[in-house]
Amino acid sequence: MTYARFTGAPLKVHKVTNPWQSPSGTLPALRTGHGEVISVPHKIITHLRKEKYNADYDLSARQGADTLAFMSLLEEKLLPVLIHTFWVDTKNYVEVTRKWYAEAMPFPLNFFLPGRMQRQFMERLQLLCGEHGPENEEELEKELYQEARECLTLLSQRLGSQKFFFGDAPASLDAYVFGYLALLLQAKLPSGKLQAHLRGLHNLCAYCTHILSLYFPWDGAEGPPPRQTPVGPETEEEPYRRRNQVLSVLAGLAAMVGYALLSGIVSIQRTTPARAPGTRSLSMAEEDEEE
C-alpha cells in the first residue's frame, strides 16, 4: 500500500476482514486490469514497476545496491523480532494481536484463524533462526533483540536529518522500512522492549509520522473518504459476497453443533423401547379391529 501511494498507482482498494472475499483466498491480493490475481507482495511491486509505477526510477546504481543491502538487513535482523513481538510474546499475542484479529474477523473465522496464523509465523521464525536449537531459547531471544536494536540504530544513523533515505523523494526502501516500523511504533504493546528503543530514535519516529500524515491522512482522527456506491464492474463482487455470507452461516452452524456435541450439551442416544407384557397381543387386537 505504501509503495503504491509513493508512486501514485491508481488502485481501487477494497478493505476486507475475511480471506474468503479475496480473489486468491489470501491477503493481500491485487487483481490487474487483465484479470490476473497476484498475492505475493514483492510480485505486486514488480507488477507495478512493469506498469511504469517505479519509486526507484531516479536512483543511482549505488543507491540501488544500498536498497538491496538494507532490505536484506531488515529481513535478517528485524523481521524475526517483529514476529516474536507480535506472535510469540504471550502478553502481546493475547492482549493485542489475537484480540485485533478476533474483533475484526467474522464468526466463525475469529475462533481459529488467529491461532493458525500464529502457528504459521512461528514456523517462519524457526526457518529464519534455523541454526539455533530450542534448548537455548532465552539466549536466542536476547541475541535477536540485541541485533534488532542495532539494526534500528543503524537505520537512524543512515536516515539522519533527511525526509527519506535517498533525499526528498520516497523510494522502495522507504516503503519497506515504513512497513516494518509503523506498526511497531503505533501499537499499544504491554511488552514493548524493542518499541521502547524505537521511540528513543526520534528521527525514525518523525519519519514514520511524516509518511502517515502525508500518504495516509485519513487513517488518523479523520475518517476515510466517503464510500461511493460501486458501479459497473464493481457489482461483480455481489454474488461472491452472498456466497461468502451463506458459507459463513453454514460454517457457524456446524461449529455450534460440533461444540455442543463435544462439550456434552447435546448428546445422541439410540435406545430400544421396552415392551410391556401383552403389548404384542394388544397390537394384534388393534390391527384386527381396524381390519
Results as ranks from 00 to 15, higher is better:
196 A>R: 04
135 E>K: 03
147 E>S: 13
222 E>K: 09
256 M>R: 15
214 L>W: 00
211 I>R: 02
161 S>N: 13
175 A>E: 08
139 E>M: 05
192 G>H: 04
121 F>R: 10
62 R>S: 10
201 L>W: 11
260 A>K: 11
171 A>S: 15
170 P>S: 09
128 L>A: 08
194 L>G: 00
48 L>I: 09
208 C>G: 09
149 R>F: 01
59 L>K: 14
66 D>P: 04
231 V>K: 07
84 H>G: 05
252 G>D: 03
196 A>F: 00
171 A>N: 13
97 T>P: 02
123 E>V: 07
156 S>K: 09
184 L>H: 01
69 A>T: 06
227 R>V: 12
122 M>A: 03
228 Q>R: 11
47 H>K: 14
36 E>G: 06
118 Q>G: 02
203 N>D: 14
113 L>Y: 01
211 I>L: 05
23 P>Q: 04
43 K>Q: 12
104 A>Y: 04
104 A>H: 09
32 T>R: 05
277 P>K: 15
14 H>V: 08
75 E>H: 15
265 I>K: 12
22 S>D: 03
154 L>G: 07
58 D>W: 07
191 S>K: 14
66 D>G: 08
39 S>G: 02
132 H>Y: 10
284 M>G: 04
38 I>V: 11
237 E>G: 07
271 T>K: 13
257 V>C: 13
142 K>G: 11
228 Q>Y: 05
247 L>S: 01
24 S>Y: 04
99 K>T: 11
188 K>E: 13
63 Q>E: 15
257 V>P: 11
71 M>S: 09
270 R>S: 06
83 I>L: 05
108 P>L: 03
61 A>N: 13
215 Y>L: 10
280 R>K: 11
291 E>R: 04
182 A>K: 10
229 T>N: 01
98 R>V: 03
212 L>Q: 13
185 L>V: 01
266 V>A: 03
145 Y>W: 03
62 R>Y: 09
151 C>A: 15
181 L>T: 07
64 G>M: 14
208 C>W: 05
273 P>Q: 15
247 L>I: 00
217 P>Q: 03
240 Y>T: 13
278 G>D: 09
271 T>H: 04
114 P>R: 00
90 T>E: 10
288 D>H: 05
269 Q>Y: 03
68 L>H: 10
177 V>L: 12
194 L>C: 00
9 A>T: 01
166 F>W: 10
